[in-house]
């Protein structure tokens, strides 16, 4: 009796394991690695890509795998070992470029295939509503007077928030090493530090602060976007006369050692996905900027980013 039940049970399980484990080709069972734990920005992008690919039938049954740790460099190291696997892609972004530098990762972007850039986000510089700082000029003046006295709160070390702080400081003639940057582990903590007056200045993605800005608890000084964003009512650093911009782009990598056909197939999948109205809707809903860039151009872009961010981090003493 027990055996009669056991056989179909084990059979079904084995079948399920087999179907999820087989190298089934990029069009049927593409694996999307999110090099972060569930709930973060990269995980969100991976799951939205998965949903879009599935709903539009670009890929029949895409899977998301989380490989969290060390600003994505653990995922990067794993991807570098998947030599020649044409059915895997991984999320990447600005933070990973910084992470490779900060963590002295032995694996870099040269060890994997650069696939595509997808989205961008810009940063916002805010102060508490009752702050004496009224403009970026005030911030520059305060920095020049005593950089240590201005506590700047943002995300983890080497991330986009700190990169922006370092660049702006340099732009106004303050050594980036003198910036009193306090790294908070989550958006919630960074907001809290501003509301309680512990941080004098906050830097984060616009979406994280948007609500507090609208509610009047925080005041936006400037955006880090390259183009003016009139609908937000906040000027960009360019518009204010500072030659600084800092995005938070996200893109896709693939394993090394792919054949031309495999690579072309993955690029086609990405191109088809981002061309769907469903993806446009997703971008809109998340208030991202679509900055799709596929293939060689993206590889060049990454090289530039690596060089640029290396230089900033060196200046900042990290």
């Amino acid at each position: 009796m027990g055996v009669v039940l056991l056989v179909p049970l084990v059979g079904a399980a084995a079948w399920d394991a087999r179907s999820s484990g087989t190298l089934s080709g990029a069009r049927t069972g593409l694996t999307i690695i999110a090099p972060a734990s569930t709930g973060g920005g990269w995980d969100g992008l991976a799951r939205q890509l998965q949903a879009t690919m599935r709903d539009t039938d670009v890929v029949t049954n895409p899977q998301v795998v989380n490989v969290p740790g060390a600003a994505g460099t653990i995922g990067l190291a794993q991807l570098a070992q998947m030599e020649g696997q044409g059915d895997v892609i991984m999320i990447t972004g600005t933070v990973m470029v910084g992470g490779v530098e900060i963590n002295d990762s032995p694996v870099g972007f040269d060890d994997v295939t650069s696939l595509a850039r997808l989205t961008d986000d810009y940063e916002v510089i805010v102060v508490p509503a009752d702050s004496p700082l009224q403009s970026v000029d005030d911030l520059a003046a305060a920095w020049q007077a005593d950089p240590g006295a201005v506590a700047v709160g943002g995300g983890s070390l080497g991330g986009t928030d700190q990169l922006l702080a370092a660049q702006l400081a340099q732009e106004v003639g303050v050594p980036a090493t003198d910036v009193n940057y306090i790294a908070y582990s989550g958006g919630g903590e960074a907001i809290q530090a501003l509301l309680s007056g512990a941080s004098d200045v906050g830097i984060s993605g616009y979406n994280e602060f948007a609500d507090q800005i609208e509610a009047g608890a925080l005041r936006a000084l400037a955006l880090s976007a390259p183009e003016p964003q009139p609908e937000l009512g906040v000027e960009t650093l360019y518009e204010l006369g500072y030659d600084v911009h800092q995005g938070n782009w996200r893109g896709l990598l693939a394993p090394p050692g792919l054949t031309e056909e495999e690579r072309a197939e993955l690029e086609a999948i990405v191109a088809e996905t981002v061309a769907t109205p469903e993806w446009a809707e997703t971008v809109e809903r998340n208030q991202w900027v679509d900055v799709t860039l596929v293939g060689e151009d993206f590889a060049d872009f990454i090289d530039e980013e690596v060089a640029r961010i290396q230089a900033i981090l060196e200046e900042a003493g990290l």
Binding site: L9, A17, R18, G21, Q63
Partner: peptide
């Protein structure tokens, strides 16, 4: 083990290694 595979692998979409079966 089979129930777990079906519930978490097939049901919840968690990634369980397929190993030799794959």
């Amino acid at each position: 083990a089979s129930i777990v595979q079906l519930a978490f692998g097939a049901g919840l979409g968690l990634n369980l290694p397929a190993g030799v079966l794959g």
